[in-house]
């Protein structure tokens, strides 16, 4: 499977994503420039974290109009894999590939910390190797992760993939780092090929960085692609 990582002006996790796919997963990977028109034949598109266009106006609001996003939308519609991490998730929401929107964190502060998330469904490309209820420890680092959606719209267009939880898997207010609705940390479209999440699996995929729970997302994608 060939991975492509989109570089918007202001992306800042693209090198970290590249490193994990290349050095840890040992899979082919290339960068995709925001102004390009096509995906150069990649199978899995990663929209990385960062502050595309400075997060000016609203996170993701300007990036969604980048030229490459039309190709990403078509790719998603064809069943191609798309993973949006943090700012990438925000872009997916602004682009309408996933329902809802992000508000500022309840604390009004940027939060960088490890959190626990509970896998709510294994029925997506990026959680196919998980079991429902599995708890992952992943880092978050964002200022706008307070997810909000109309519940009917959410139910009609997406499924919840990850919820913030405590170490024992309970979704409780104390374990919610940003005020996100129903503790939502990640979503998938109904087909399961498009996933967005606030935590950063790419900085949590090697033992020397203190954890490897993030690796399961990309490993799932590889297996999903092989078995498709």
């Amino acid at each position: 499977m060939r991975f492509g990582i989109v570089v918007f002006p202001g992306s800042n996790c693209e090198r970290d994503c590249y490193h994990v796919v290349d050095a840890v997963l040992d899979s082919p990977v290339r960068y995709l420039w925001h102004a390009d028109a096509d995906l150069s034949g990649v199978d899995c598109v990663i929209l990385p974290g960062g502050f595309s266009y400075g997060d000016y106006l609203r996170p993701g609001a300007i990036a969604r109009f980048a030229r490459i996003m039309r190709a990403v939308e078509e790719h998603a519609a064809r069943g191609g894999l798309v993973l949006g991490i943090c700012n990438g998730f925000q872009i997916l929401l602004e682009a309408g590939l996933l329902p809802g929107a992000m508000l500022r964190n309840r604390s009004l502060k940027f939060q960088c910390q490890d959190v626990f998330v509970r896998v709510e469904t294994a029925d997506t490309a990026f959680t196919s190797m998980c079991r429902p209820g599995q708890i992952l420890r992943l880092p978050i680092k964002h200022g706008d992760g307070n997810y909000h959606a109309d519940p009917r719209d959410l139910a009609a267009r997406a499924k919840v993939v990850f919820r913030y939880c405590d170490a024992d898997g309970r979704v409780v207010p104390e374990a919610n780092p940003n005020g996100s609705m129903d503790g939502i940390a990640g979503l998938a479209n109904l087909a399961g090929n498009v996933v967005g999440l606030m935590p950063h699996p790419e900085v949590c995929a090697e033992p020397e960085l203190g954890g490897t729970d993030g690796l399961v997302l990309l490993a799932s994608a590889l297996r999903y692609w092989e078995e498709r």
Partner: peptide
């Protein structure tokens, strides 16, 4: 304080804030 800082981007942070010194790896 340091929770308000992204101390992980770059994927090099081996010892995070809160110890005597920060330690970073050099990839490769």
């Amino acid at each position: 304080i340091w929770r308000q800082y992204d101390h992980l981007v770059g994927a090099n942070t081996v010892l995070r804030p809160g110890s005597d010194a920060a330690v970073l790896r050099v990839k490769g």
